[in-house]
Amino acid sequence: MENNLITEDKQKNKLEKAFEILKTMASKPSGLIGLTIVLFHVVLALTSPYIAPYDYKAISPNTMLLAPSAEHWFGTDSLGRDVFTRTILGGRTALTVTFFGSLIALLWGGLLGIFCGLVGGKIDDVVMRVVDAFLSIPWILAMLLIVSLLGTSTEVLIPALGFFYGKGIVRVARAATHDVIAKDFIVSARARGHSNMSIIWNEIIPNVRDAILVEGAMRWSWMLLGFSSLSFLGFGVSPPTPDWGLMISNARGLMSFAYWSVIAPIVGLSSLIIGINLTADAFAKALGIDRSTKAPV
């Protein structure tokens, strides 16, 4: 409590604030590791087309299943393609699809949750029961249905993933809204006669934004896993596009004697997921909404 008494007189603009948060995140080893991994993956995804040593779709019977060497760092796969090239390119689709998917999930889930939290009553009841019903459907089956009906293009995958991962955010946003809704500043805005939209925009969103963003970051890592599972099952992106899920699926039968072609994409995928998770945790801690605080003794 006494810590709060020290206040900074200087006003910070938004950029400085964002920098401050990043600094706090990086001040702990777990946050620093997470940020580094995510940054590494993003930079790789941006630059990989220019640094890839081979053509990702060049099939060559002469170089089938070569072990890692100076020429092929991560070896080659069953069609003779360079695994290193395909691994560094494999993150691009996954990152793009899941990033935009998460944005969509955040938007619709967050707004619907805030709205339900604010209006309450029957509308809230009905919407939440529908969300519950969707939560009870195994999403992968529903996804398979959508993908087999509409195809596997990114235009289908992004909104579909965004929809399925957003329903969890509805609950988080609604709960966060309930935390602030009983506060007097909302009552005060109501008594003044502000419209619901104005209350949501001015009073609620600034107070629930952090909680929803953290939840969105967590969803991003889950979506990444979900997207790769789809590819693994053959319902994600179509060959010969390099993709981690697809690469694991193709190489898993040869695991016993050509382990290199399956290990590289697994490391890529899991490191990115761990990185995002660590970053999200550090983000939550930096914003001060981490619930796992130690009890005072």
Binding site: D184, V187, S188, A191, P206
Partner: peptide, 16 residues
């Protein structure tokens, strides 16, 4: 609505 205004007990809660 304008003519009747409220001031609350706890300013920590009544100011966003």
């Amino acid at each position: 609505l304008r003519a009747i205004q409220l001031i609350f007990q706890n300013p920590d809660e009544s100011l966003n």
